[in-house]
Every structure is written in C-alpha cells, then in structure tokens.
Amino acid sequence: MSMSLVQQLVDGLAALMLLVSFALLAQHRLLSVLHWFAAQGVLLAVTATIVAYGTGNHELYISAVMTFLLKGLLLPWLLWHVIKRLHVHREVEPLVNLTLTMLIALGITLFSFHIIQPIEKISESLTSDSMAIATACVLLGMLMMITRRKAITQVIGFLAVENSLFFAAIGSTNGMPLVVEIGIAFDVLIAALIFGLFFFQIRTTFDSLEVDAMHAALQDREDEA
C-alpha cells in the first residue's frame, strides 16, 4: 500500500468527521446534539495533532491543544449551561422529518463529492482527500441551521460549520498560521458568549427560543405599533 499510516489515520478521521456531522443531524434530543458537538471538537483536536506529527509543523500542536480546550470542552460546557438555565433540553424540533433530512444530507454529500473531485486531482497536500468531506460537513452544518426550529440548534449548526472550515484548513493547507488561528478561535468564543447572552435576553423578551415564535411576536409588536 502506498498510503502512509498518517494518511490512513487522517482519512479515517475525515470519515468519522462526516459520520459525526450526520449524527448531529440525526439526534432527537438537544443534549445528545451537544454530546456529538463536543465529540466533533475532540475529533478536530486529534486530527490537528496527527497532521502536526505528520508534517512536523509544531505550531499545529498548540492549535490542537487550543481546539481541544475550546471546542471540546469550553463551548459545549457553555452551551450545556445555557440549556440547563433555560430548561430547553426537550426534543429537537426539526422542520423536516429526520429520515428525509438524512436523505437530503446524503444527496448534499454526494453533490459536494461531485464538485470537489476536479479540485482534488490538482491538489497535492497530505490530506487532499479530506477536502471533499470537509466541504460536505460545511454544507451539512448549514442544513442543520435550515431544518431546525430552536435557536440553540441553529447556533450549534453554525459552530459545526466553523469546525468543518477548520478541518478543511488543516486538511488543505496543513494548518493556518498560528496568529490567524488564535484570532479565529477567540472570535468563535466571543460569538458563542454573545449568543449565550442573547439567549437569555431573547428568552426574557419573547418567552421562547423558537425562531418562528420570535417572528410572530415581532409581527404582533409591529401591529400594535
């Protein structure tokens, strides 16, 4: 076999990444969505470590540790806290039924494979195969934002998109410069904090975290005004 062990491992992790993206879509309960989201963070950290080992790029070790702390622990914990405080750990409310969502997701994956194939041929980096999968994961995160009713699941979808972009970055460029990465990491953290604050604010204003309900409430308010 011409594939090196690192290559195999990265491919395997890419496949796992895809699986986790599907798992995020397939969950019924908000808490399990959160578990899978945390798993995605850990997976990213592991990928970064392996790519760091494979390319000898030591800066990537730092970003691996950061990813683990931020995306594997801190963000899930924050969101868990929000969910607990707001008592919204009930079922995920999908707009489209789950089986259909999964089939659409399958179609999207196929589509992104189809799109990426020509690009892959010219790319030569260590993990070029995972590019297609990263693209698919980005699109799946977006699908999650589209098909869910609760604002929290939409935020998780957003964060999943960010995770996939990070994955694509490690895959296609063997990691971005550390400064950029730290910057993005803090942006994400701040975004999550702001989202968290907003949830509380929204909750006190609208009594609900459902996007449709907010829309309706706003319309009512406009009518009154």
Partner: peptide, 8 residues
C-alpha cells in the same frame, strides 16, 4: 460506499 470511493 462514498468514503470508499473518495478515500480508498
């Protein structure tokens, strides 16, 4: 199946 085609 898809990962087989893509990765292997």
């Amino acid at each position: 199946l898809l990962t087989h085609y893509m990765l292997e």
